[in-house]
């Protein structure tokens, strides 16, 4: 097969099977990312509020939310009166 620079992934696709786990992982991330971003679209939320709203374990929310912060989708808002929980908002 001819290899075209900039499209070498096509070459590897022929040779290598993408694992089901990797595919599932991608699907799940896309789903959760959408859920979190949609929820934040409405209002700024803390992790506690997101947990209730999305009915997901809070540790998973932390993981995905912080990853979204890392990649610039979400930004950190204010901390509550008790200095305990931050709220999070969409990055414009």
């Amino acid at each position: 097969m001819e290899i075209e620079k900039g499209k070498t992934y096509k070459y590897l696709r022929e040779k290598r099977e993408v694992s089901q786990a990797a595919k599932d992982n991608l699907k799940q991330f896309i789903k959760i990312k959408k859920l979190i971003l949609d929820a934040l679209q409405e209002s700024d939320l803390t992790i506690e509020q997101l947990t209730q709203k999305l009915n997901m374990p809070s540790n998973e929310i932390v993981y995905y939310l912080m990853s979204l912060v890392k990649y610039g989708f979400v930004q950190i808002g204010a901390v509550d009166d008790m200095d305990a929980y931050f709220s999070y908002k969409l990055k414009k």
């Binding site: 803390t46 992790i47 506690e48 947990t51 809070s58 540790n59 929310i61 932390v62 993981y63 939310l65 901390v79 200095d83 305990a84 929980y85 931050f86």
Partner: peptide, 8 residues
């Protein structure tokens, strides 16, 4: 943060 719920 606590990784369990994001609390300080």
């Amino acid at each position: 943060l606590r990784p369990g719920d994001g609390k300080v």
